[in-house]
Amino acid sequence: MIKKISGTAFVILALILVYAPIILLAFYSFTEATQIGAIPGFSMKNYSTLIHSEELMDMIKGTLVLAFGCAVIATILGTLGALGAFYSKKYVETGMNMLNQVPVVNADVVTGFSVCILLIAVFGMEKESFFPLVIGHIVLCAPFVYLSVVPRLKQMDSSLYEAALDLGASPSVALKKIVLPQIAPGIISGFALAVTLSLDDYFITSYTKPATFDTISTYVVNATKGSQTDIKTALWALSTIIFVIVVIAVVIMNIGGRSGKENEKDF
């Protein structure tokens, strides 16, 4: 009994420690306080600064466009790659698996540095072209799409595909109507992962981005060094909005995928 209670207490304490900073910041984002600890008065000032600041809105839009754009390209590339590798000879598949694994295990700093050194130092490309940034983000994301599609291909019932061919479907129709639906969950979770990875990235972005472009990560890091308190506290509002979006998304996902038990096994 004591063991059970102390176990529960430990879990609750850990949850409090994890959420205290986020929730405290969310609380203070609705006040005029410029630092935590002061006794605040209620205000929506931070939210209006956030919405009316062109610089902040552009930065957020840029981050989202980059994340979704790169995730789309990464999903197409990664899915096609997984399909190709799956139907190729063993040594081709092994080679692709190995190369695909490099960005996964590699430190983001090294990935960013290496992409940057290839495109900028060797090929003399301009960062202002956004090409290095987009390539960097695809290198970061595509391997994870590949990794989430491969298991689905392996689980796939290959006799369905053969049956479709026997019944007269052309190979491309069979691929579209039989294979694609079976690997769709892998493609979707790969896409979601790609978006999250790109949104969260700091290192690859900082090595490859044009000087005037910022994502949320690079912007926040610069803002914490700067002395503009209204920007600093507007970021608290942004953090709160993201937190709420994440909570809503998780709740929807949980209700949508009622089969929590199955999910558990999937992990």
Binding site: I22, L24, I36, D200, I216, S217, V220, A249
Partner: peptide
């Protein structure tokens, strides 16, 4: 899923 720079900002405060 919350950007890590924002989480570290919260922790820093």
């Amino acid at each position: 899923w919350i950007n890590f720079t924002l989480r570290i900002t919260a922790l820093k405060e």
